[in-house]
Design a protein around this nucleic acid. Sequence first.
DNA 1: TGCTATATATAGGACATGCTATATATTTAA
DNA 2: TTAAATATATAGCATGTCCTATATATAGCA
Lengths: 100, 100
Amino acid sequence: MVREYGCDMRGMLSFQILWLVSKKPMHGEQIAEEIRKRRGEKPKAGTIYPALKEMSSRKLIKGRKSGKTITYSITPAGEKAVSQAITYFVRSFGDIFKSA
Amino acid sequence: MVREYGCDMRGMLSFQILWLVSKKPMHGEQIAEEIRKRRGEKPKAGTIYPALKEMSSRKLIKGRKSGKTITYSITPAGEKAVSQAITYFVRSFGDIFKSA
DNA sequence: TGCTATATATAGGACATGCTATATATTTAA
DNA sequence: TTAAATATATAGCATGTCCTATATATAGCA
């Protein structure tokens, strides 16, 4: 996926999902589509749903089912996590971003 | 490492190394120290040297040995790779930075 | 009522990351 | 010249990511 550029950027998926959900409650397909807009490739169902499930089990997000969709929103624990993750992210990679 | 915050940020190591080396030729220990400044934790020897070796084998960086140190600098292929990776990075995660 | 599209779930696996532990080479200090 | 510190190398492994393939449930339309 990103290997062509000489580096992977895996491991950022949960962070990005958490950030997206912190901005606006969304269901899986919407989240996948938002990621596609940014990365150029849409995560597959087998990628997105296990990630959502795992984050739910860790109480970072919670889902409310309505019909065939499950809308996820962030929990207080998720808010705290995303805030700390952003701090780490900016501290770690901020200068790369500034150099662009 | 970042798990405490609710997300991992693995997979960014090679990208960060490549970016650092593109700014200034460095040897392994210097690179590890630069990463420590940013992330708070210094990658272990067993992390940094295999990564450097792999990137050398892909001709993204090249090392020149002098005494006990090997100073790595970026190659033309590495320049191209880091430039594309930065573009992808900003496109994918730029709005997270802006939100911080 | 069937047909199709949408949304979610999950097993199983390929692959990469980054670790621990250990080993070796080189430099410096005693 | 030993001893200690520094720099690099590598085997082996636990973990996590994200995939393919497949299955199920719901919704909307003919």
